[in-house]
Structure formats: C-alpha cells, structure tokens
Amino acid sequence: MLTVYIDFKSPESYLALQPLLALAEETGCGLRWQPFRSRQRELPEHSPDPELTTSHGRIREAYRQRINRRYAALQGLSLDRPPGNDGTDTALTALLGADGDATAFVVAAFKAHWQDHKNLDEWDVVASLLASAACDSKQLSSDALDRHQHDIEAEGIVSDPALVVAGEVFIGRAHIPLVRQLLNQRTE
C-alpha cells in the first residue's frame, strides 16, 4: 500500500497523478489517498537581507510555475485556470472522510479543478463528484481537516505530493523510481 498526500489545487500533485496511477498498475500496490492542504512557501520572518529574501521567493515561485508548465506540456496537460478558484478544503475534507478506494473520486476532482474549472470548495460540486465516482464519504467538519493537517505536518508531511511507503516519507514525484524499488522489495 502506498499512501499519497495530495491537494487538488496543487500543480505538483496534479502532475503526479498519472505517474502514480501507472506505478500502482505496474506494481499492483493499492493507493491510499489522503488530503494535504498546500500552502505557499514560507519566507524567514527575520532576514539579514530582506530584499534578497523577497527576490529569492519571487524567482523561486516564477521558476516553479515555468517548470511545472514544461512538464505539464509533456503530459499533455494545461495548468491554466481562472484566478481565485483555488479553494479545495471541501473536497479535501470529503477525501479525508472517504471510505475505501477513493481513486475514482481523486481522478474526477483533479479533472473538475484543472480541466472543468469547477469550485472544489462548493459542497454541491463535491457531492456530485463523489456520486459520479461511487465514493462514500463521511461528512466531516472542517475542524477534522485542520486536525489532520496538524498531525501529518508533525509526521513530516511538509509538502505535496507526499508519498509514504513503509513509514518513510518522500516529497515529490521524482522519488517514484525509489518508491517503486521499495514497493517491489516488499512484495518479493
């Protein structure tokens, strides 16, 4: 079993979706999807050179957007989306409460956000996705998502997508080759 922490609004999580589905099919491992509320990278509160700090953050973010677009194009995906449509807490809470295999819901939610530009913070939208994916979800409160986020950050889930195999955390889809080896070792 491979546990994967994702956020539907995160381009890094979106770009990991197809490679993770391929990994699951290849290795026969199950995927346990868990929510992670992604946030902007934090800058130090006190810097010896605030101008350099700001510049670093700006350049890093511009790079992140550019490089994600490059790899998205290789997958035939677009990362364009309407501005402001980045609330995903309702969908993440639904994922937290999902029973059983939530893969169909995850695939549908990513498509709804990135291709259909639907608002994943609206319950009607999320309920429709759950229904179409035949996925049952306990109706949890947003407090449950807050507590979950607090707990997983303490366990080292600091960004997304986070892949957890045998208790070991790896951040980013670039780790898939090593995760594949670890999964294969466990089934040998």
């Binding site: 800058l43 130090p44 006190h46 010896p48 050179d49 350099l52 700090t53 670093h56 953050g57 890093r60």
Partner: peptide, 9 residues
C-alpha cells in the same frame, strides 16, 4: 548560497 536569506539561520 545565502541560506539565512531564504531559510533563516
């Protein structure tokens, strides 16, 4: 790298 400028010290 000027690490303190982006990760603190």
């Amino acid at each position: 790298l000027d690490i303190p400028s982006y990760l603190g010290s």
